[in-house]
């Protein structure tokens, strides 16, 4: 039984421009001890997907099963029980900590809410976790604004680890950090994964980070997964034209410059193109693509692509 299994998940919002189909039919599995990377451009719905998995946003349709239990139907009380096991690390280390609480208060609240230990035990747990993420012990008496971005992200990681979760949704955990700090945080996340036996759903727009960090990668475009494969396969044999374009667009010092691989902008999720969602920007689009939405199908074991011409691309 997989740790997390999401089937046909849809999250739609009403907005001024009409119905926003942020997440529009997603299947996803995270096995125990696995890191699944979710890649896509801003506006593709990857953050909404992450928040829906935690039920911070309610899904419109579909099911989210955590350890076999459907959490889409849980009421608030039972949800609280599940939330101990699924945690989240946020992108913006400046916005994700309450500026008016000390680090000690920020870290104690989850333990109080979930009735973990008495005062002394809680102190002990906090001191442990603070040391684990590499912060000095006296940090607990300070306020978030006294820390640098990288240190705040460490605090965010400490908070996510407090309740001994099994799955952590990392929503762009290093995008807001300077390059020299990113490696520190990625290494910390890896150490914590090993130590606590965690699984990650790792959301990022940065392909090179996902390339290093994930076991399996899913590429998302306009609310749907367009390609999914294990890490090595995806980078060596990408089959969806969008995946290829994303890879080519990442500037790489070791390679001469090419023309921008994709023209145009991401269409609005309130006005999703008919047929294949990608046909408005796809260099290979045909009439078939404009009319029929391709099925998300396996072209090799563990390698699925949503493209009519996946077999012909290589």
């Amino acid at each position: 039984m997989p740790l997390l299994s999401v089937s046909d998940l849809k999250t739609h919002y009403k907005s001024r421009d009409g119905l926003l189909r942020a997440v529009d039919g997603i299947d996803l599995v995270v096995e125990r001890g696995e890191t699944v990377g979710l890649v896509g451009e801003s506006g593709c719905g990857k953050s909404t997907l992450g928040k829906t998995v935690l039920r911070l946003v309610d899904p419109t349709a579909g099911h989210i099963e955590f350890k076999g239990e459907d959490i889409t139907v849980l009421d608030q009380r039972n949800l609280q029980r599940v939330r101990r096991s699924i945690q989240m690390i946020f992108q913006d280390p400046y916005a994700s900590l309450n500026p008016r609480q000390t680090i000690g208060e920020i870290l104690e609240a989850p333990l109080v809410v979930h009735k973990v230990g008495d005062r002394t035990e809680r102190r002990q747990i906090i001191a442990n976790i603070v040391a684990k993420v590499g912060l000095p012990a006296e940090s607990i008496n300070r306020y978030p604004h006294e820390f640098s971005g990288g240190q705040r992200q460490r605090i965010g990681i400490a908070r996510a680890l407090l309740l001994n979760p099994e799955l952590i949704v990392c929503d762009e955990p290093v995008s807001a950090l300077d390059l020299s700090i990113q490696a520190q945080i990625l290494n910390l996340l890896l150490e914590m994964k090993k130590e606590f036996g965690l699984s990650y759903l790792f959301i990022s727009h940065d392909l090179s980070v996902v390339r290093y960090f994930a076991d399996r990668v899913m590429v998302m475009y306009l609310g749907r997964i367009v390609e999914s494969a294990d890490n090595a396969t995806l980078w060596s044999d990408p089959r969806h034209p969008y995946t290829r374009a994303l890879m080519e667009a990442v500037p790489d010092p070791s390679r001469p410059r090419q023309a921008a691989p994709l023209g145009g902008d991401l269409p609005s999720p309130s006005d999703i193109p008919s047929g294949c969602r990608f046909h408005t920007r796809c260099p290979l689009a045909t009439d078939l693509c404009r009319a029929d939405e391709p099925e998300f199908r396996a072209i090799a074991p563990g390698h699925q692509v949503a493209c009519h011409f996946a077999d012909r691309i290589n």
Binding site: Q182, L190, S208, R211, Y212, F213, N231, R255
Partner: peptide, 15 residues
């Protein structure tokens, strides 16, 4: 240090 710390797309370096 910067160049060494940044994961690169075309490098086969995995965690």
């Amino acid at each position: 240090g910067l160049l060494a710390a940044s994961p690169r797309l075309k490098h086969d370096f995995h965690y």
